[in-house]
């Protein structure tokens, strides 16, 4: 349980798509609290049998382990599973309201005839987004993180068991709308795709540098609104490149369709590179 950002494993819910009556399957991840409190601190019973009560026999243990090693372990097994099944997994990250779900809906409508697609939706609450995606005809699964602020690789592993994405398909993982925490949690995806809309500030890449540093592609969304806004596109791209010189940027509008073919081309090319074993 997280009192700072509210991260909590215990409140995660995964909505299983076969449960059409709206039943939520509660995935309570048990925290093992079986701590034995041995009140007897007998310093004379250590390996050296040095009977010197009160003298500490503490020793140093070298660990050298990444703090996120547990998550990274789950991410590695997800990645292995994706590779075995030829699945391109993309982790879509953005702030709330950037138009992720609309962009995804349009992408699915335009590509579902030629590509096999599925979606994992992450939100703090409600199954609204998964319902929106299912309305397009592709399979979608909702994860509600409860108090949590990001998806982690463990949740994705469970979601894959239920969703069972098809061989050689593209899996979109729509992360919780949050530009901070999801940057650090690898889900096993091939790429993080950051979506930034022009109704936000152009300096978002500087304000949330870790996310734009972790992303391989930035989709600058809602460009149909540019005539009504004071948003400096070049400045925004320059800021994104300051935190990540390798980031690719595509300008799109999920509503008008402008620039979407470039995004589709990126998806197809990336999938092909994956299938030939890049």
């Amino acid at each position: 349980m997280c009192t700072v950002c509210g991260c909590s494993e215990g409140e995660t819910r995964i909505d299983e798509q076969e449960h059409t009556h709206g039943h939520h399957h509660d995935h309570v991840h048990p925290h093992d609290h079986a701590h034995t409190h041995d009140q007897l601190h007998d310093y004379g019973q250590g390996p050296a049998h040095a009977h010197a009560p009160g003298m500490s026999q503490s020793r140093m243990v070298q660990i050298e382990q990444d703090i996120l090693s547990k998550n990274n372990g789950y991410a590695a097994s997800n990645r292995h599973w994706f590779a075995e099944h030829g699945i391109l997994a993309l982790n879509l990250v953005s702030s709330p309201g950037s138009g992720k779900t609309t962009l995804l809906g349009r992408t699915i409508d335009d590509l579902k005839a030629e590509m096999r697609l599925s979606v994992i939706e992450g939100d703090q609450q409600t199954a609204h987004d998964a319902e929106r995606i299912r309305a397009t005809g592709v399979s979608a699964l909702q994860i509600n993180t409860g108090k949590g602020c990001h998806l982690d690789a463990h949740m994705i592993g469970h979601a894959l068991d239920s969703l069972q994405p098809e061989q050689n398909s593209v899996l979109f993982i729509e992360n919780v709308g949050n530009l901070v925490c999801p940057a650090a949690f690898d889900l096993g995806e091939a790429h993080k795709v950051a979506i930034l809309s022009v109704t936000e500030g152009e300096d978002k890449p500087l304000k949330y540098p870790d996310m734009f540093h972790a992303a391989d592609l930035m989709l600058l969304n809602k460009i149909d609104l540019l005539p009504h806004l004071q948003f400096d596109v070049d400045q925004c791209i320059d800021y994104a490149r300051r935190v990540n010189p390798r980031i690719k940027v595509l300008q799109v509008s999920a509503t008008s369709g402008e620039g979407m073919t470039n995004w589709y081309q990126w998806l197809k090319t990336t999938q092909q590179l994956l299938l030939i074993g890049d």
């Binding site: 140093m60 703090i67 870790d210």
Partner: peptide, 30 residues
């Protein structure tokens, strides 16, 4: 910070090579 420029030449073409880790180094236990 990630968005800082090179202190030598002011370029932003920087490849981070250190200072990203979060590691448990060692423990004192008994």
């Amino acid at each position: 910070q990630r968005f800082d420029a090179c202190p030598e030449c002011s370029s932003y073409q920087l490849q981070v090579t250190g200072g990203e880790q979060m590691m448990i180094k060692e423990l004192e236990v008994n």
